[in-house]
Design a binder for these strands. Structure first.
Length: 388
DNA sequence: GGGCCTGTAAACATAC
DNA sequence: CGTATGTTTACAGGCC
C-alpha cells in the first residue's frame, strides 16, 4: 500500500478518461512565444494521462495496488472502517463537488492569502479546532530568493488583486509583502518586474479610468490566453518546491503514538514518507484523539505550518455533523489547485487537503510522491474536478 | 553549439 | 525638476 503512489506511475490501467481536454506540459512561460495550446476552453488544463477513477475498481488493479487500496479504502472512500492495522482512520466527506466553471481560477489567492510553500498559512485558522494556531516563521529561509520567476510573481500578484489588475506599484508591494527577500533586495528587481511586464505577452497594459485615475501609470492584467500557461508554470514550481523539497528528502520517524493511537507502521515502507502522512480534509476535518475527543478539546500543541519534519500515520475522524452548512468554502475548490499544507505537531506531520477535493489517498500519494508521479497521474485539475 | 528562457542592467522616453 | 512608469536593448547564465 505504501508504494502505491510510485506504482501508479505506471498504472495506466487505473487511469480512465475523465476530461476531454488534454494538454502538454510545456513548462515554459509564454514569454515571447505563442500561447500554449490546451485544446480546451475555459482554461481547463489537464495532462495527457487521465486521472484515476474514483474509486478505482479493485479488480482493475494489480495485486499490489489492490492491496494498497484495500488497506487505504477507509480514507479513499471516505467511509468509516478499520484502516491500517491497528489504526483507526476515518474520513467522512460531506463536501459536494463544486461547480468549477474555471478550474484554473485563482480567486482563492486573495482569500487564501498564500499558495506559497515558504510562507505561513494564516488562513488555516478557519479550522475551528485550530483557533489557537499561530503561524510561525517559515522554517525555510524566508529571506532567500523565491523560486518563482518574475512572471510568476507578477501573475500571482495580479491574480491576488480584487479586480485582477494591478498597477506596477501594487505589484511591487505585493511581492514585497509576500516575499521578504525583496524587502531588502536592491532595486534592480523592480526594473525586472517592469521589464517582464513590458516584454512578456502574458501581461497586458490597461489604461486607467481617467475619471477615477489615482496614481501613476497603467493597470496590468493577465492575458486570458496565456493564463493557463502561467498557471501551469506556477503550479509546477509550487509543486516542485513543496513536494520534492518538503517531503522527498525528509527522514521518516515512526515513533510515538500521539493521542494514544497505536503507532503502527510496522508494515510500512520506511522509505516512503508519504506513507505515514496524515491526511485531513481542510477546513472541515477534525483531528481526533484516540478516545474520539476532538482535537480542539485535547490539543496536543499548536500546529506549525510548513514544517519539514517527520511523518507518521495518525487517526483522523471527520464528522459530518460538525460541518455547518455555512462553513467557509475552501477557496481552493474553484482553483484547480490542490493545495497541500503540512502542519507539524510534535513528531507528527499533518497533510491538509482542501475539504471538498474528494481526493482519495492513493491519488494524494501520487500527487506528492514526486513530480514525475504527478505528471504521470494527471493534473490536479482533473483529479479535483474532472472525474465526477 | 544553438535556441530559448530568465534575470539583470542600462539607456531613454514619457507621465505625473 | 525629480520620480515613477514604460519601452527597448544588451548581455550573461542555465537549461534542453
Amino acid at each position: 500500500m505504501f508504494s502505491l503512489g510510485r506504482e501508479m506511475e505506471n498504472s495506466s490501467h487505473l487511469l480512465s478518461p475523465s476530461s476531454p481536454c488534454t494538454s502538454t506540459f510545456g513548462g515554459s512561460l509564454p514569454f515571447s512565444s505563442s500561447p500554449q495550446q490546451t485544446g480546451c476552453s475555459n482554461d481547463h488544463l489537464s495532462l495527457p494521462l487521465s486521472p484515476i477513477s474514483f474509486p478505482p475498481s479493485p479488480s482493475s488493479l494489480s495485486p499490489a495496488t489492490a492491496e494498497s487500496l484495500h488497506s487505504f479504502s477507509p480514507l479513499s472512500h471516505c467511509t468509516a472502517s478499520q484502516g491500517l492495522e491497528g489504526q483507526h482512520i476515518q474520513c467522512f466527506s460531506t463536501a459536494t463537488v463544486p461547480d468549477q466553471d474555471d478550474l484554473t481560477c485563482l480567486n482563492w489567492l486573495h482569500q487564501r492569502g498564500n499558495l506559497l510553500p515558504l510562507q505561513p498559512l494564516p488562513k488555516i485558522t478557519t479550522l475551528p479546532q485550530l483557533e489557537s494556531f499561530t503561524p510561525t516563521q517559515p522554517l525555510s529561509p524566508a529571506m532567500s530568493k523565491p523560486p518563482y520567476s518574475f512572471s510568476s510573481l507578477i501573475f500571482m500578484a495580479i491574480e491576488d488583486s480584487p479586480d485582477k489588475r494591478f498597477p506596477v506599484k501594487d505589484i511591487y508591494d505585493w511581492i514585497v509583502k509576500n516575499f521578504p527577500y525583496y524587502r531588502t533586495a536592491t532595486g534592480g528587481w523592480r526594473n525586472s518586474v517592469r521589464h517582464n511586464l513590458s516584454l512578456s505577452k502574458s501581461f497586458r497594459r490597461i489604461q486607467r479610468d481617467k475619471s477615477q485615475s489615482v496614481g501613476k501609470g497603467s493597470l496590468w492584467c493577465v492575458c486570458p490566453e496565456y493564463r493557463p500557461a502561467l498557471l501551469e508554470v506556477l503550479r509546477k514550481t509550487h509543486s516542485y518546491h513543496s513536494t520534492n523539497i518538503n517531503l522527498l528528502n525528509k527522514p521518516v520517524l515512526l515513533e510515538g503514538a500521539e493521542f494514544g493511537v497505536p503507532a503502527v507502521c510496522d508494515s510500512m515502507e520506511m522509505s516512503d514518507p508519504l506513507s505515514h502522512t496524515l491526511l485531513l480534509s481542510s477546513p472541515s476535518t477534525q483531528i481526533m484523539a484516540a478516545d474520539n475527543t476532538p482535537f480542539s478539546e485535547n490539543p496536543p500543541c499548536p500546529l506549525t505550518p510548513d514544517h519539514e519534519e517527520l511523518v507518521t500515520m495518525e487517526s483522523v475522524e471527520y464528522h459530518q455533523s460538525d460541518v455547518s452548512e455555512d462553513m467557509e468554502k475552501d477557496p481552493l475548490s474553484d482553483s484547480g489547485y490542490i493545495e497541500l499544507h503540512y502542519y507539524e505537531s510534535h513528531q507528527y506531520q499533518y497533510l491538509v487537503l482542501p475539504g471538498d477535493t474528494e481526493l482519495d489517498l492513493e491519488t494524494v500519494e501520487i500527487l506528492q510522491l514526486d513530480a514525475e508521479a504527478q505528471e504521470a497521474a494527471g493534473s490536479l485539475l482533473d483529479l479535483a474536478g474532472g472525474v465526477y
